[in-house]
């Protein structure tokens, strides 16, 4: 059973001219275990995405102190690809286009990297085909270039397709629900639930809205404001946020 532990995280982000801005100031302690689903909720600009990207190792973010470990191993000393091979996955809010690289080539290269060996071709093709059918994506999708000309919904389905195929230990989903229509939201949520129901993946769902929580039931809800967790609870906390919004916290934070 895998465990992600985040302790006392301080993160700054590079802004123009070599200057840095402190985003996370140490108020983040979080433990995510395989089989659990955690929702991190907060208003825009609260540092939710900073948390996601700094754990994944984006070069723009610098961790000034604190620790992040996966099963006791120090993630922060690893390169971005090493973190992924250790079992981390980040579904991005804005997946980037990679011209010239087809989805099928990309998926196979990623699966080979994460699994440590190339998947056997016959079972792999079947695996991809089934995953694509579950996410209701057209088979022609595989021959398109990664994220190039994808609609918002297609990009997110593609992220969840990777999640299903790469089978990480811990999956961080950054605003996966944003920009989705109701049908795509259902399809994407079903994908997250399938992964989570295996009991082998810990899910950290970062969201601004409570909408996705109608489909994906979190075990824990953490309210994130001003770069720190200000309240924690069960799924009932999400219901309360739905009716009250973040005003209560943002006022207190100021």
């Amino acid at each position: 059973m895998s465990t992600l532990e985040i302790r006392d995280l301080h993160v700054s982000v590079a802004i123009a001219d070599g200057e840095e801005k402190q985003i996370l100031r140490g108020g983040v302690d979080l433990t995510v275990k395989a089989g659990e689903t955690h929702a991190i909720m907060g208003p825009n600009g609260s540092g939710k995405s900073t948390l996601a990207y700094s754990i994944a190792g984006h070069p723009k973010y610098r961790i000034t102190s604190g620790s992040v470990t996966l099963d006791g191993e120090d993630l922060l000393s690893m390169t971005v690809d090493e973190r992924a091979r250790a079992g981390m996955f980040l579904a991005m809010q804005y997946p980037v286009e990679v011209p010239g690289v087809s989805v099928s080539n990309f998926l196979r290269t990623a699966a080979t990297a994460v699994r440590g060996e190339a998947p056997k071709l016959r079972t792999w093709i079947k695996e991809v085909k089934e995953a694509m059918e579950r996410l209701e994506v057209d088979s022609a999708f595989a021959e398109r270039n990664v994220n190039e000309g994808f609609s918002g919904g297609e990009k997110k389905r593609h992220e969840i397709l990777q999640l299903e195929l790469l089978k990480p230990k811990i999956a961080i989903l950054d605003e996966t629900d944003s920009g989705l229509d109701i049908d795509a939201l259902r399809v994407v949520s079903d994908g997250v639930n399938r992964v989570s129901e295996t009991g082998e993946v810990g899910v950290l769902l970062i969201t601004h809205y409570t909408r996705i929580l109608r489909y994906v039931k979190p075990d824990f809800v953490h309210v994130f404001v001003g770069g720190k967790i200000v309240e924690e609870g069960g799924s009932e906390l999400a219901d309360r946020l739905e009716s009250e919004g973040y005003v209560r916290y943002t006022k207190a934070a100021v």
């Binding site: 070069p59 973190r83 992924a84 091979r85 991005m92 990679v98 990623a110 790469l166």
Partner: peptide, 16 residues
């Protein structure tokens, strides 16, 4: 850097 990060975040080395 964004393309590189995206591919690396899927376990792919910078060189690959």
């Amino acid at each position: 850097d964004e393309q590189l990060f995206y591919l690396m975040s899927r376990g792919i080395t910078a060189e690959n």
